[in-house]
Write a protein that binds this DNA or RNA. Structure first.
Lengths: 343, 343
DNA sequence: TTCTCTACTGTGAACGCTCACAGAAGCACG
DNA sequence: CGTGCTTCTGTGAGCGTTCACAGTAGAGAA
């Protein structure tokens, strides 16, 4: 069985074959491929027909070699990967970015910077120009990889406001502060006054902003600030449970809790159940994220929905614009209160 | 400190620069880059030093242009994406594959074939040789994309035994049948005899095999076969709940259930609770997957762990071997019974 | 007519790398 | 001293594309 029957990969047609087939020059085919300016309708037509007939697909390597672009982007995750891969929102984000890029015919390379070795390799890979830009997911402040990429002038769009990186980095984020404000306002409107909070990690912008929104609304409503009503968590279920236990101990009269993530809120619900408090009668619980955990919980969680599908499409839009030469941009998207049974 | 004024991306050094720096020819540098055979130790040393000094990184596009390889592989998900992205195992798989590939310095391209349009684009992209091989996740039988890739002779490794594809396709799978056997054997050893089953989708190999294992063990143990004890689900929580309700109706004397996924088992637990049955006293429940759902459930689920980390690394190993010219291979990995509170 | 302008087309020269080949040097053998 | 072998090195060609440039034809203006 010689090369060619099913199984052997035959040599694909080149731009030259298409040119011959269409009776034009390589240059004309290339022009058709790249927007079709300065090409007569007749030639246009002939080339397209030839492309269909031959099944021609452009060789991206050859193109990249001369243009210097790779026409691909990286999706870079630098921080504790377990946390993200378990986070349904991360999955929506990854999926959304992949699809939005696919619509522009731009492949996405998945890059996980776990070990020191991987970080070095990835940095090298990116700065060598093997991707045109990077979608960055990094919870931490002062990420060394991100910093290095920024210095190398690689177009970068972060998910969530990055701490510590200059204004040269674009980012797309949900309006955490406003979301928190909505939730606390909602709790106040239910007549609750002793409102506790379990925050997210306070070295992340999201964590900080949600706490800020909570404090703002309480201050504006003239509710007495009480720091014993605030405990911090790390977005994990366990930390939510522990946080609620501490809150109940310090403020047994608490009648509502705003929890900075749904996963933590699940833990809170479980702690409240153990303590014999009814939700929402005794204590109303508000989450954040609108993850599957929110609907899976009993009672189903009132929560703040972040527009993850829009976040991903905006990240892609901003990144492609920046690759195209535009300036870095910050995009902040509105959140939405989703009312369920827990309030 | 002249090194790169922030912002401007300067032209990276080429193999030519390295050659000049090291006082050798391009050919010698290239040989060092590709394994270093037929290179004197002195030249070897000089080239490596020059590479370090210049910060040279090979231009993969130029290399690919001439070798015809892309030195990258695709991770292709063809079927209902929601299901997979919500599946923690899928995440482990994706992560594992990415990391295993990174160790070989091979980038992973994420490809989601949702719409018809995406399928066409991706097929074109792959058959055009823009990736050297494909890691395939596709639950369905007779996947047209997979079939087309197989025909085009693209190295392919499926996760789970693919139905309907010829023997030309490699695959890596957990031993579903044996896992099911272990679980049912375990239930029998607890003295249970009226053992029900909620199966997975029966158009998937996993679904079929787990059911087969269940039937085998019961037959071997001389337990009377009773088809009213078998209902089918689709791996979703809701289908587990519905399945358990039907089982209870048809066989109120049921004293154990083997459920083909942890997520469905959660639904089963919930149905049993509603029906007033205690777990495990009245009815023992065994799951499959060892997903986070297993530990999150109350009571924590006894389940079958699939070695997802090994599955991913084996998929990568087999794929790279196949790209290197070896024949397709099938790898079946053992599962493990994890005993918790539900049995 | 002649000149200019626009719309279009073809042609070489790159891009950075690998590969095949040729050749050099060292050594052993006859 | 030639011949053959092995180990090492340099050179030119070429991968498939884009880009700059030169050139053609036709239309309109002088």
């Amino acid at each position: 069985m010689t090369m060619g029957n099913t199984g052997g990969r035959r040599k694909p047609p080149t731009i030259h074959d298409v040119a011959r087939e269409a009776g034009v020059s390589r240059g004309t085919v290339s022009r058709v491929l790249n927007g079709g300016h300065y090409v007569s309708p007749a030639a246009q037509e002939a080339v397209n027909a030839a492309i269909r007939r031959t099944g021609y697909v452009v060789n991206r390597h050859a193109r990249s070699l001369i243009t210097g672009r790779s026409d691909s982007v990286g999706f870079l995750l630098t921080e504790p990967q377990e946390r993200f891969f378990e986070d349904p929102n991360f999955n929506v984000l990854l999926r959304g970015c992949t699809q939005a890029l696919a619509a522009h015919d731009v492949p996405l390379l998945l890059m996980l910077a776990g070990t020191q070795d991987e970080r070095r390799r990835i940095t090298r890979y990116i700065t060598a120009g093997h991707v045109d830009g990077v979608l960055l997911v990094s919870s931490h402040s002062g990420d060394p990889v991100a910093e290095e990429l920024r210095e190398a002038g690689v177009p970068l769009v972060a998910c969530g406001k990055p701490i510590g990186l200059g204004s040269k980095v674009s980012y797309v984020a949900a309006d955490d502060r406003d979301g928190a404000r909505d939730m606390v306002t909602h709790l106040l409107s239910l007549g609750r006054r002793r409102i506790g909070m379990v925050t997210g990690p306070l070295d992340t912008p999201g964590g900080v902003e949600r706490l800020a929104g909570y404090r703002e609304v309480l201050a504006e409503a003239g509710v007495e600030a009480d720091d014993s009503l605030v405990v911090s968590g790390d977005y994990s279920r366990a930390s939510g449970e522990a946080g609620a236990e501490r809150l109940l101990e310090r403020a047994p009269d608490m009648d509502a809790v705003f929890v900075a993530s749904d996963l933590m809120a699940q833990g809170v619900l479980s702690a409240l159940r153990k303590a014999g408090r009814r939700v929402p009668e005794d204590v109303a619980v508000g989450g954040f994220d609108d993850s599957p955990a929110a609907t899976a919980a009993t009672p189903a969680l009132t929560t703040i929905r972040q527009p993850w599908d829009r976040i991903s499409s905006e990240m892609v839009r901003v990144l492609l614009a920046q690759i195209g030469g535009e300036d870095p941009a910050a995009v902040i998207l509105p959140t939405e209160l989703v009312r369920r049974e827990s309030t």
